[in-house]
Design a protein around this nucleic acid. Structure first.
Lengths: 345, 345
DNA sequence: CTGAAAGCGCTTACAG
DNA sequence: CTGAAAGCGCTTACAG
């Protein structure tokens, strides 16, 4: 019986009841200064009595802002990543009174730029958090910059003019490689990720820098080129395990390819980590569920999203230029898939 | 140099240039009838020339609709499910000119009802798709019904007055159990899911109905109570594998618990499926990556979300009452973790 | 098939 | 510290 056709109270109703102007009600609801405490109380009481809620649509039209930010991404195969990123962005949005509009898209789409500009021009979002690999589309970045659309990039590659957040992938990959070296491994296979992703190159660089520092010669035969998916990882692992002598450890550039390596090894009846150490990257939700549980790198994905969102909202408030560059550290998660080599030196 | 302070063209600018009234421009952009083709063309041309895009905020205020629907859920541990559901909802939203606002929440929060009503009262969303287990909160459902907030539930439990979509979990669990029976298994362990989820009970019901039909006595010792997470699954599997005689197959109510069962079995040096068949439920992204790959049940999650969104948008258009109930079938995905029993009868 | 008027419920820019 | 006026850019409800 409730609702029916009872009209929602407006700012006018509250102003009447409180005996003030609508401007004063507006001040109270926007936490603006210059309202006497007693006046404020009367407004709050009146609003409470009427069950008043400011109408967002009206606020948006009058203020010419939407109080919504958009999140652009193209990660059909990485639900864990997307979930973490949404979580981080949402946390910040909620404390600051913004809503989040998710906008998965096809990074390769020829109409991507128009699609995104339209999103902004129709007053759907005030600004954008752009995740990799979309954030590496130069055309899009240039359009965002030209149109003055406030946005923050999450990317392993720089783009002048737009603020950016990245993860220290190279350092983490270096550290993981060092971990394997310290366990006694010398023939360490490496499975690279998709060549279009900046992270692939960073992770390879970390692998090579660690080898070099420890005086281990780089051997191209030990480096396979995958695409970050299970299938390519499985093929790469198969080739590495067919090498003679076989590597005693394999470092895959992400967990999917590490899982594939585990399977390839199991099929050869290798025991892990006795016969082969396997390391991954990303610490996806299933990394702790494999047999054995995977040693991998945990990226601060939630933190990255939080920071990106904070930077975006900061810019949205004080329209200051921001071309800052932030780097967050990743950490290694030691599990049971890596261990001392049993090789006879 | 672009943007600068150049004002965005409005409906008035287009009307002027085309030599028509703003009402006619409005008609064209809303695909309303009663516009002569020639007039329509002039409007389209004028809009194109000016780069006009209707301002959503104005449209929302005038039409008293937001063209946004909200998606409510509480699945911190199920990124795969959430990703699929978002994907399905977004597909429908895009073809019908709506945006999607995600609203993860805590189903147990005492302020949940207020939070959701506020979302609607502030004119943030026109309606809601509510996913389980949030959709099983009676207080929330009652509030949605009382307030006349258009919403569609995805749930394994009915609630009079609100349309609902469910998956035939019981049938699928029955079918999976039958699959195991046909492989020769007689002592089949079952790991139940979280007791607060309707699906847990449906899946158990499917297990028992298949046993009964095949004349296998129900044995309470073979049924363990988990919570849908890895840890509880591991504990349950441990207890089942300690039974004497050991079950020759274990059917876990979801993939996380099935993965845990795989690990528990590996630790006992059991070979799968030779010594033990293991089946899961959900076909999560990693189900194909385990060792061995998991036989499981694929739920039509994307389809569920699409249907829910379609029903919601239909109701939003022709305010008709809708208390329909839809059931979608799940299918078994046969992989390598289940096989013929090697038991000596 | 087309349009003039009113209004949606706020904020902005001022004035005092 | 407070308010009156104008306006944001559309749609609604009519009239013709």
């Amino acid at each position: 019986m409730a609702s029916a056709t009872k009209k929602r109270p407006t700012i006018n109703d509250v102003a009447h009841l409180a005996g003030v102007s609508i401007k004063t009600v507006s001040r109270v609801f926007n936490d603006e200064p210059n309202v006497r405490p007693a006046t404020r109380d009367r407004v709050v009481d009146a609003a409470g009595e009427l069950g008043y809620r400011p109408n967002l649509s009206a606020r948006r039209l009058a203020a010419n802002r939407t109080f919504v930010i958009g999140m652009l991404y193209d990660n059909p195969k990485a639900p864990d990543y997307v979930a973490d990123v949404q979580y981080g962005a949402l946390r910040v949005c909620r404390t600051r009174g913004y809503d989040l509009l998710i906008h998965p898209c096809d990074a390769q789409s020829p109409t991507l730029v128009d699609e995104i500009l339209d999103l902004h021009h129709r007053a759907t979002v005030d600004g954008l958090v752009v995740l990799q690999p979309v954030s590496d589309q130069r055309k899009l970045n240039q359009a965002l910059l030209d149109q003055g659309i406030v946005s923050v990039r999450v990317s392993q590659r720089p783009f002048a003019g737009l603020p950016r957040i990245s993860v220290c992938d190279q350092e983490a990959a270096d550290e993981m490689t060092e971990h394997l070296i310290e366990l006694g491994h010398r023939r360490i296979g490496f499975i690279m990720g998709h060549p279009d992703h900046g992270s692939s190159h960073d992770r390879l660089a970390g692998y090579t820098s660690a080898l070099e520092r420890h005086g281990i010669a780089y051997d191209g035969a030990l480096v396979e080129h995958g695409l970050y998916d299970y299938e390519s990882g499985y093929a790469c692992a198969g080739r590495l395990l067919a090498l003679s002598p076989r590597p005693s450890a394999i470092f895959a550039s992400n967990d999917h390819m590490a899982m594939a390596t585990l399977t390839a090894a199991h099929e050869l009846r290798l025991e892990i980590p006795r016969d082969l150490s396997v390391a991954g990257f990303d610490d996806t939700s299933f990394a702790g569920f494999s047999w054995p549980p995977l040693t991998t790198v945990r990226q601060p994905v939630v933190e990255v999203a939080q920071l990106a969102t904070e930077l975006l909202l900061d810019r949205l408030q004080d329209r200051a230029e921001d071309t800052s560059d932030h780097r967050l550290r990743a950490e290694i998660v030691y599990r049971a898939s890596t261990g001392k080599t049993s090789e006879i030196a």
